[in-house]
């Protein structure tokens, strides 16, 4: 199952994804996708190091859909995280 690695950034807690060149970006579509176990293991090792290097907190693999050619979350929870906002109109936004 294609997967990416997600975490929260240490300094501000914002949701990030492991991207090219070991960067952690907020944009899921830029995430590196592991197609198999071996690929995921490699990404996990990078993530473990990033956690040890106090860049990110709590990394974990997350299954994605690639039907549209870009990684998309499978679960509601991960859709909400990837959107970086709640699904409702916030109280500060026009209703």
């Amino acid at each position: 199952m294609p997967s990416v690695i997600t975490a929260n950034r240490l300094v501000d807690g914002i949701v990030v994804y492991l991207s090219e060149n070991d960067n952690w970006l907020t944009d899921l579509t830029a995430a590196r996708v592991a197609e198999d176990e071996a690929g995921l293991e490699k990404l996990n090792a990078i993530a473990g190091q990033a956690a040890a290097d106090h860049i990110i907190v709590g990394p974990y693999p997350m299954a994605v859909d690639l039907d549209k050619g870009i990684p998309e979350p499978k679960s509601v929870r991960e859709r909400i995280r990837a959107a970086h906002r709640p699904t409702i109109t916030a109280v500060t936004e026009a209703r």
Partner: peptide
Amino acid sequence: GLYLQLHAY
């Protein structure tokens, strides 16, 4: 009182 939630602290 500081939690780490879905989007942020």
